[in-house]
Structures are given as C-alpha cells and as structure tokens.
C-alpha cells in the first residue's frame, strides 16, 4: 500500500491550483477567527490541518464551500471565486464534498436515498443511474449490504463511511474532512481512515482537519499547523513531525504525541 501511496504522492506542484485562498480574514462578531490565511491547494494534493481547539481549522475549511462567509480576501475554487452570487456558491458546493464530524446523514432517508439525493436533484441524473452509482460507492466504502437501512440503524463508523460515499456520489473535485474520526469510538476509527486512504490512493484532492498523526504521516503531502487564526507552519510530514520550526508547533506536537 505504501508504494502505491508513494506513487501518488508525486503530484506536481506546477499543476494548476484547485483552491486558492488569498489573505482571508473572518470575524465572529468582534472575534477575529481567521487572520490572513494564504493557502494554495493543487490538484491531487492532500493537506492535513492540525492545531489546538478554537484555532479556526473548521472555520477555514467551512469557508471553502461557503458554509461560513469570509469577510476579507479571496477564495477561488477551481477557477470560480466565492462571492455572494448564489449560483456560484451552489456550483462550488456541488464540486466540493464535505464530511462532518457528526456525519449529518439525513435520518428520514434510507442510506441509498441519502446517497442519491444530491445526484438526482442537483446533477439531475436519472434515478436508476444515480442508484447504480450509489451502490458502486457503497461497495467502495464496504457497506453495500446496508443500502436499505436508515442511518439510525448503523454504527458511527458505518455512518461516517456512508457520509463519505454520499459526498463521492457527487463526483467532487475536492473533499473536505472536518475531524471525521473524532466522534468515533476507537475501534471504528480505523475503518474510516482506511476508506480515506483508499480515496487518497485514487488521487482525490483532500483537505483533512484531523489529529490522527499516523494518517497525516502516511497520506499528507503537506501538514499545516494552525493557531490563533493563522497558519503558523506548513511542511511535508517528514519535516513537520521530525523537525518542527516554531515553538508553538513543537509545544502542540509534544502535547499530542504525549
């Protein structure tokens, strides 16, 4: 597996940018959450963001599909800039998959209906085709036999895998993960990480907020450390873990790796 990963690691930084974040600021009332974020994510690049609680990691990735609005600076996703234009926002959201900490599956729909909702209503794909695709992605996250159950009948790990499949059904160009494993019992974390690793091997562009450092080491091209609304440090996993530059990064790593 690691060899396959190695191969895919070699995205070329000369590749086009998938996401450009230029000097982005955001406030919650008087509270300055994001303080001048600059980040370019290339196609097929995989980025892990870590940092202490309240540092603005979630806010940053939620700005990328406009679940939060940024107040200054520019965010450009696949060539389209995020402005107040509703049509652009909906278009970008359809291209950007998002996986939440608490899964957020639709409890009133079966797993299959959860997966086909977006394709049928946003992409206007015929139902039969959408279901076929949904079954393909359910296979992929190893959960096809649960297609006709409701989310409440699945375990946390299963629900999160369904959530990943739901995003994949939209054929996204980027996947955003906001602490996808932190609401899970320890024995379920691996099954979700495994699915994410498979996704990485296929060359998906990913931004993952997580404290799973093992995952960061083996999958990320770049690991970013955020604190107080800023990206303090960003480097290859190797450098980041073995050779942190900033004091705050060192402190954080020492806390998280005991």
């Amino acid at each position: 597996m690691n060899e396959a990963l190695e191969k895919n690691m070699k995205y070329r930084s000369s590749d086009e940018a998938m996401i450009e974040i230029i000097d982005v600021h955001k406030w919650f009332g008087d509270f300055h959450v994001l303080r001048g974020i600059n980040l370019t994510v290339h196609k097929q690049e995989r980025i892990v963001i870590c940092g202490p609680s309240g540092s603005g990691k979630s806010t940053l990735i939620r700005c990328i599909n406009r679940l939060e609005e940024h107040h200054r600076g520019r965010i450009i996703v696949d060539g389209t800039e995020l402005t107040n234009n509703i049509k652009n926002i909906e278009k970008i959201r359809a291209e950007v998959g998002m996986v939440f900490q608490h899964f957020n599956l639709f409890p009133h729909l079966t797993i299959l209906d959860n997966l086909t909702l977006g394709p049928i209503w946003v992409r206007k794909i015929p139902k039969a085709k959408a279901e076929e695709a949904a079954m393909y992605y359910l296979e992929k996250v190893h959960i096809a036999e649960q297609a006709h159950k409701y989310p409440g009948q699945l375990s946390g790990g299963q629900q999160q895998r369904v959530a990943i499949a739901r995003s994949l059904c939209m054929n996204p160009k980027v996947m955003l993960f906001d602490e996808p494993t932190s609401a899970l019992d320890p024995e379920m974390i691996k099954e979700v990480l495994d699915v994410m690793i498979e996704l990485a091997q296929e060359g998906m562009t990913m931004i993952v907020v997580t404290h799973e450092m093992g995952f960061a080491r083996s999958v990320a091209h770049r690991v970013l450390f955020m604190d107080f609304g800023q990206i303090v440090e960003g480097n290859t996993p190797q450098e980041f873990f073995d050779n942190p530059k900033h004091e705050r990064t060192k402190l954080f790593l020492s806390q998280i790796l005991h």
């Binding site: 599909n65 679940l67 909906e90 278009k91 959201r93 359809a94 950007v96 998959g97 998002m98 939440f100 957020n104 599956l105 639709f106 909702l117 977006g118 209503w121 946003v122 739901r166 995003s167 939209m170």
Partner: peptide, 8 residues
Amino acid sequence: EAAESLGL
C-alpha cells in the same frame, strides 16, 4: 449544512 454542502 449537509444539504447545502451537496449543492441543494
């Protein structure tokens, strides 16, 4: 949020 992030 889940619905919106699907583009609905």
